[in-house]
Design a protein around this nucleic acid. Sequence first.
RNA 1: GCCGAGGUGUCAGAGUGGCCUAUGUAUCCGGCUGCAGACCGGAUUACGGGAGUUCAAAUCUCCCCCUCGGCUCCA
Length: 471
Amino acid sequence: MVLKIYNTQARRKEVFIPLEKGKVKIYVCGVTPYDLSHVGHARSYVAFDVIRRVFEYLGYKVTYVQNFTDVDDKIIARAKKEGIDPLALSQRYIGEYFKDMDALGVKRADSYPCVSEKIPEIIHMVAALIEKGVAYEVDGDVYLDVSKKKDYGKLSAQPIEELKAGARIRLDEKKRSPLDFALWKKAKPDEISWPSPWGEGRPGWHIECSVMSMELLGSTLDIHGGGQDLIFPHHENEIAQSESYSGRPFVRYWLHNGLVTVEGQKMSKSLGNFITIRELLTRHDPHALRFFLLSAHYRHPLDFSERALEDANKGLKRIQTTIFNIKNAMTYASNKGDDSFRGKINSAKKDFLQALCDDFNIPGAIATLFTFTREINAYVAENPGKADLEDALEILRELTGVLGLSFKEEAPELVKGLIEEIIQIRVGFREKKDYEASDNIRERLLSLGISIEDRRQGTVWRFIVSSESQL
RNA sequence: GCCGAGGUGUCAGAGUGGCCUAUGUAUCCGGCUGCAGACCGGAUUACGGGAGUUCAAAUCUCCCCCUCGGCUCCA
């Protein structure tokens, strides 16, 4: 199946062709770890997690790199306020970041480089850029001379003249042009710094991504991802540095996820309208949050609301119930098979993949899953064949797995046995038509988080999904 | 000001010319059930406004209105 990807630079969907057959090299911009991550961060990393899983499912060997910007103004400011070492602060929040991402089911990257570990490599690249005549030093600061990069602005489609005229570019008398940006910043007193040919200082913001991605993935990446807010200037500047350095195209496909909004406004620290992942997980199932984050196309804005999250949770429960229904139906399934149902299994898989191959249309793929669950639930109520059920379960597991959703709810044998015993007692009451007693048992169990359902084929039970935080 | 993305039914959210006008959620009706729940079936409610192209437009063209994002740290 042909995979098409929307490339920000081309501003249209393109057929994906990797640099090396069967391999995909992905670099995604990571966080600046100075505080807990919010829903906006979660969205980006969940989206790229699924993108990565889709590549893996399609048989690609994926190498996935994500950085941590552990040297930065905000980290320095925060560490100063708390009276601790900036790198200790960032290490702490890197730990918190992993807790959140693990809860959300985000697979670990192959490598998580930090700025503080790559200083010699960064200095090497800055020096090389000066040597090539595309960067210049002024009193301990080093800037990239944007005028030397003829196609500057190609990613963000910004006409350079307009950028210069823009009222928001910060004035800095040391720069030759307002568009030039810092590769190396001279240290201020009492700031974390490293020795360099230009004196004590630290790296500028953009240079780290160029150094790390090229070191770990090579001078041309297949995929470079990040939030839409990074297109300009961050990614534009990465291109300028990297291509000036290597002389080769830096990135084949640029992918940018849409931003999370709250009542239509971008969720951000500075606006103060952010909700941390941590806080949300005290009230919601992490799977529900993940499912919600996947409910809109990754390139479109996603408006956060409790209602939307609840709706997503209800949809997710449908899939959980279907898996439960299949397992339950195994106990009374026959040995027959149903060709029409097998056809539905096959088309479910085909439709699901087709949606994902169209620029990772995850909401479209989820819609095919719901159609599939409806078909399964209808089949389960008929006279299902065991082999059909097994296949349906396997495919459903496989497809939800591509979205990073898992449905494990096995109880210990002892607990299972006890609940079965109680259900047998209740069955006795029902046979005697003592509904007061049987309803009472049902309510008592429900209050313990165990739901009882009387079906045509007998009484079934399950745990109702816990909304307890997993942290 | 410049650049970009959007406006779809109660809400969320796919769909970029016709085919079966997704899907979830909501509400209502029906089936199953002692009841409840889950599930199944059905119904309800759409394409920001206007004009145009076409046998045919949510989808293409033009004009207008509105929202959001980038141009400053940002996923």
